[in-house]
Design a protein around this nucleic acid. Structure first.
Lengths: 255, 255
DNA sequence: CTTCACAGGTCAACGGTGTTGTCATAAGGT
DNA sequence: ACCTTATGACAACACCGTTGACCTGTGAAG
């Protein structure tokens, strides 16, 4: 069974399902998204998707090599939807802020899908378009190539990471979320100043702000830092070189 | 079968496994962590864990209500380990950088646990100690309470969010991860300059850096922005320097 | 010592999952 | 009208988490 998948473009002999449905990559992705939204991320399995489509589960393997492939297709569709409503103005900071907030909002609107797809590189059309667009905001703004790539990377990952984090929070059952809010109020709001002076001193602020997402603040911090860097660059000296050369390792266990 | 779990403190009638192992909450958590480290995140299943322990899988349900409970126990242990090796020096930026990188590394070392616990507030001892410690770094540095809380919030969420994001990446099956690296090289590395000028211009940088985590960069941006903010505050208040408040920078006990 | 309740380990089963080898058939090109 | 073959269907495999019923060693009480 070397390869049972035929590229979407080359499909011709379509044939209806026993229940009369015409399968297609598009229909499968749409149905998967609907399934995720309506019944939660756990509701997405090959078998349920097959049932929802009116087709045998194994038929899906004619369109996607494995479930991972399907996830990538879903992720790309979400990227496309987000990008489609974004209109860059030429002010790099404003444009990035706008896009970041859109990405975050998009993730919150599709919590389960966002959680599933945030960490994947799809290499598909919409994603490529997004990369090109963001670099197209940074480079004309005056960031040198290497710097532009670094900021792009941090910006995108931060939007995706916070999107997934906040999605996970909002996807919790109602009771669990209220329990968490209660923890902040009753546990952190009442620690004695003798043992926990800093928490006690800031308790009102903690209780007030810990419930909302910190993404807007984090985004603003990122933009501030980028602007600072740009100012240093324009000052001519080139400024001090940032020491954030990627030292972290994503993937690959470190023995 | 209302509740087959007995609180750890009340256990007394321990009895060895058929293979002669004495089970305990601790042993189970330790073994689970070892399993994750040695054979990857996918290796952690109730059945495998049972096998590794020399016990019937169902025995574990005498100690944890379900797998989620086990994950939370693991996560709590991880928070403890991360804090235990952290030694604040008094330089707020350096201390936050150090802690952030430790949190991120801890998450990467145990992907499944990190992904599950990132968005939860436990209100338990280790977590409280962490909050107190971080505020104890920011406030003495001169950040006003509200500002300190805002930066604390962004800092912690950023560490958790990136930890979860990168964990998800590293939890992928080997083949999928190699496929992603290949996507960057073959897809993004070869786009023509006519259609995708910005990607083409930065392709070498993209290919070189997109595989590693952007957390160090994002963290550095956050610290830069915080320092900028602090400079503005000092300038605005006539350069008045807040002085260190003394002993209270550590939360709970430090073994 | 013996007795005895029951915590805790084991077994078997249920319903779920992703995936694949094989087969049947309708669609398209000739 | 034929033949090829793409594509849908079926059955099976090896896993998964979880649970109800059973059995037995343990620790305390008498």
């Amino acid at each position: 069974m070397t390869d049972r998948v035929v590229p979407a473009a080359a499909r011709q002999r379509r044939r209806p399902t026993k229940q009369g449905v015409m399968l297609s990559e598009e229909l499968i992705v749409e149905t998967a998204l609907r399934l995720i939204e309506e019944h939660g991320a756990d509701a997405l399995s090959v078998r349920r998707l097959g049932r929802a489509l009116g087709a045998d589960p194994s038929s899906l393997y004619r369109y996607f090599r494995h479930t991972d492939d399907l996830m990538l297709a879903i992720a790309d569709e979400l990227i496309g939807r987000t990008l489609r409503t974004w209109r860059p103005t030429g002010d790099w900071a404003a444009d990035l802020r706008d896009l970041g907030l859109r990405m975050h909002a998009g993730a919150l609107a599709h919590p389960r899908a966002a959680m599933l797809s945030a960490h994947r590189v799809t290499g598909r059309a919409h994603e490529i378009q997004a990369v090109e667009s963001i670099l197209g905001v940074l480079r004309p703004a005056g960031f040198p190539d290497q710097e532009a790539v670094r900021i792009y990377h941090a910006f995108v990952d931060q939007a995706l990471a916070f999107g997934a984090l906040d999605s996970a929070g909002s996807a919790l059952p109602r009771a669990a979320r209220e329990a968490e809010a209660e923890v902040w109020r009753s546990t952190y709001g009442r620690l004695p100043a003798e043992t926990h002076p800093h928490i006690a001193a800031t308790a009102p602020h903690l209780v007030a702000t810990m419930r909302s997402s910190s993404y807007p603040a984090a985004l603003e911090l990122l933009l501030t830092a980028a602007r600072t860097r740009l100012d240093h660059l324009r000052a001519g000296t080139g400024g001090r070189r940032p020491h954030w050369t990627g030292s972290g390792s994503r993937g690959g266990r470190t023995p």
